[in-house]
Every structure is written in structure tokens, then in C-alpha cells.
């Protein structure tokens, strides 16, 4: 009887999980549709006269909005289809790549830097948190400085890092690391203390070494917290890498692309919007990768599916 109950509980039907995933994707797409609708709706009411993406002044007007609102003109808020059209245009004058391909390459480049910074930062955060939970003295002495480190605007710090290390990918990685280690440190100070105190008594009754307590109790118990930190760090590392590329004058990556398109915003606002879109998608993709790893690592735990 008991065994029958356990098997029912154990076998969670896969289709239900897939249906739930589909529903969540549909929800995200629905929100996107609403955003586009509000965006174009505002332009429909108060934008500048509508023309096809490849047409300019003098070409026939498709729709003349009744009002004239500056914040929805084509410079402040380009048409969604203008951004989409721009993605298919050459990345730069005379380049064979279109904008979408160029942005994809730039995003990959940025991801590489961000990813290294993320790994180094996560490791640093883990080491710091491990030291802090084993020594109240270290925790009291250094945690305030860890917190203070994050109140310095990265815009102020990045040039100093570039100056100290020299222009190059290393400086970008260091900036990404700087933004990454903090969420992991804070989450893991909590996580490494989140074990069931009775489990500690159990380990004590086994005369377990500190290493065994760490490796078999503290660390596994902390993993849900670790992934919470890592998910914040994943997006922060992208921001760090973009700022690092900008300040470090790296010739590739989203940071450089965003800087360039910023300078030419007046002539092509769609390009900067497209770059921002790719930066957002990169952050989202990195988040999803971490979430995927989380689902694999935490499988079998009762609340793994949440979060």
C-alpha cells in the first residue's frame, strides 16, 4: 500500500510539465505582444506620418497620426518594423554581414568575456562566503568592505581597472568579475548556513571532519542559494562586460557596438534599439543557461521546479 503511494508520487507525468513550459512561453510572448501594441498604438495616435521602412520624405504616407507627441517620434521610439528591417540591413557601410549577424557575433564575443568573468566571480564569491561562514572574525571584518565595493559606480571604477591592467580583454573580464562575485558571496553566506541543524548533529555523531561537513552537508544544502546568486550574477556579468568593452576600447563586442550606434543615433536610432534588444536577449539567454543547469543539479529535490 505504502509502495503504491510512493510510486504515484514519484512518477510525475512529463506531458504536464511540457504543457506548463508552453504556457509560460505563451505568457512571455503575450506580454511582448502587448508591449508592441502599446508602442505602435502610441505612434499611431501621436507619431510622425507612417511610411514603409525603406522609404523617406516624399514617398507616399500610409497613415497620418491625429496628434503630434515628441516622445513617440521616430527618433525617440522607432517603429518595431523599422528595427526589424534594420536588422536585415548591412552591419556597417560596405560590410557583407547584416546587422543581425553582426550583433549576434558581437553578443557571442561579449558572452565569452562575461562568461569568464562570471566563472571567476562565482568562484571568488564561493571562496569568500566559505571563509566568512567559518570565521566570524573574517566575516565581521570584511563583509562591510564587500558591500562597500558594490556601492562604487562601476562607471567610476572601470577606467581605473583599465588603467591599472591595460586595455584588453583581461580588463573586461575583471570588470565582469567585479560585478559577479557579490551576489554569489551574499547568497552563499546565507546558503552555507542553511543546513538543518539536526543534520549537523548527525554529522557530529559520525565524528565527521570539517571537510566532510562542508562537502556533504553545507555545500549541497546551499545549492539553491548558490543558483539564486548565480542567476543575478549571470545578468550582472553581461552588464560588466559591456561597460568594460566600452571603457576599455575593445574593438568587438556589444559594448563597442552600443558606443558606436550611440554616436550615430540621429541617423539610425533603430540600430541602437536593435543592439539593446540583443544585449537584453543575451542576458536572458545567460539566465536561462544557469536556470537549466540549476534544474539538472537540483533535480530530485522537492522544490527544484520553483524559482
Amino acid at each position: 500500500m505504502a509502495s503504491a503511494m510512493a510510486t504515484t508520487l514519484a512518477s510525475r507525468p512529463a506531458p504536464r510539465g511540457r504543457a506548463r513550459t508552453l504556457r509560460r512561453v505563451a505568457l512571455v510572448l503575450a506580454v511582448l505582444a502587448v508591449v508592441v501594441l502599446v508602442w505602435e498604438g502610441a505612434k499611431f495616435l501621436g507619431g510622425v506620418p507612417w511610411r514603409l521602412p525603406w522609404q523617406g520624405p516624399g514617398d507616399p504616407i500610409l497613415h497620418r497620426p491625429p496628434f503630434k507627441w515628441a516622445f513617440v517620434n521616430d527618433l525617440n521610439l522607432p517603429h518595431v518594423w523599422d528595427i526589424a528591417y534594420a536588422l536585415l540591413q548591412p552591419f556597417e557601410r560596405g560590410s557583407e554581414q547584416n546587422l543581425a549577424q553582426g550583433l549576434f557575433d558581437a553578443a557571442l564575443y561579449t558572452w565569452r568575456e562575461a562568461g569568464i568573468g562570471f566563472l571567476v566571480g562565482a568562484l571568488l564569491g564561493l571562496v569568500l562566503a566559505t571563509l566568512f561562514v567559518h570565521s566570524r572574525l573574517l566575516e565581521r571584518a570584511f563583509v562591510p568592505y564587500v558591500v562597500a565595493s558594490q556601492t562604487i559606480p562601476i562607471i567610476a571604477l572601470a577606467p581605473m581597472i583599465v588603467f591599472a591592467i591595460g586595455q584588453g580583454v583581461l580588463a573586461v573580464v575583471v570588470v565582469a568579475t567585479y560585478l559577479t562575485f557579490f551576489p554569489v558571496t551574499i547568497a552563499m553566506i546565507r546558503g552555507l548556513r542553511s543546513f538543518d541543524p539536526r543534520s549537523m548533529e548527525l554529522m557530529r555523531s559520525y565524528a565527521a571532519s570539517d571537510w566532510h561537513v562542508y562537502w556533504k552537508l553545507r555545500l549541497p544544502a546551499s545549492l539553491p542559494y548558490l543558483f539564486t546568486g548565480l542567476k543575478i550574477s549571470a545578468t550582472a556579468s553581461i552588464v560588466g562586460a559591456i561597460i568594460g568593452e566600452d571603457v576599455g576600447a575593445i574593438q568587438s563586442g556589444l559594448g563597442r557596438v552600443i558606443t558606436t550606434f550611440n554616436q550615430y543615433y540621429i541617423t539610425g536610432p533603430e540600430k541602437l534599439w536593435a543592439a539593446i534588444l540583443f544585449a537584453a536577449m543575451l542576458g536572458g539567454a545567460f539566465f536561462l543557461v544557469v536556470r537549466g543547469v540549476e534544474l539538472v543539479v537540483l533535480r530530485g529535490r522537492p522544490r527544484a521546479a520553483e524559482g
Partner: peptide
Amino acid sequence: YGMVFQAPVLMDWRTVQGNVELPLEVM
């Protein structure tokens, strides 16, 4: 000593097998 508490105090990231093996791993 072997200890059994009021709550099972099993580690939810380990299977039944892994939980029984825990003290043996430590030892």
C-alpha cells in the same frame, strides 16, 4: 553511536541509497 531523531533528517538531495550510505562515506 547511531542516532535517530523525531524527524527523519534525511538529506533531500540524496536518494534513499545515498542517505543510508552517508555515514559509510564519512567513515
